[in-house]
């Protein structure tokens, strides 16, 4: 994460067991931060889905439902953007794999990454076999909102 040279105001980090009942905490934390940043209701709700989808991927594909593993959610507030990173211990995948769902050939899986991409301004996925997967999502803020 490129902290050097950027105008980081605050970093909030949440570490949860890799278990379904805790993913709601990531959404609730996001709601609190979004409210602090005076994001609109819809902006907060969009980001809640994005962070939950990233956590769900970490849960299902990273730790494979092993609650002994951890998911780390990092909320980085900068002057002009909110960056949310979700880290797990999985093997990772390529962001270019995110495809538009085909309504004629839908499967129960595969919608999560598409939703993330649709609901945030930028998304980047880094996978490293020994360090897990890091999904980084960026929401740009209108001028001055991080300074409230």
């Amino acid at each position: 994460m490129a902290l050097e040279g950027s105008k980081v105001r605050d970093v909030i980090e949440l570490k949860i067991p890799s278990a379904p009942e805790y993913i709601r905490l990531a959404r609730l934390t996001l709601a609190g931060i979004g409210s602090q940043l005076q994001l609109s209701f819809d902006e907060i709700e969009d980001l809640k889905i994005a962070v939950a989808e990233a956590c769900t991927n970490a849960l299902l594909y990273g730790s494979q439902n092993n609650r002994q593993e951890e998911i780390i959610i990092r909320y980085l507030i900068e002057d002009n953007k909110l960056t949310i990173s979700v880290l797990d211990n999985g093997s990772g995948f390529d962001c270019s794999e995110i495809a538009v769902p085909n309504p004629e050939d839908l499967t129960p899986g595969g919608l999560g990454l598409f939703l993330i991409k649709a609901l945030v301004d930028e998304v980047n996925i880094l996978g490293c076999p020994e360090r897990g997967t890091e999904v980084t999502m960026v929401k740009y803020l209108s001028e001055g909102r991080a300074n409230v």
Partner: peptide, 13 residues
């Protein structure tokens, strides 16, 4: 009030 891809997946199935 809220649905994510796991809920959508159930509807598709």
């Amino acid at each position: 009030s809220y649905i994510d891809s796991t809920g959508l997946g159930i509807f598709i199935g």
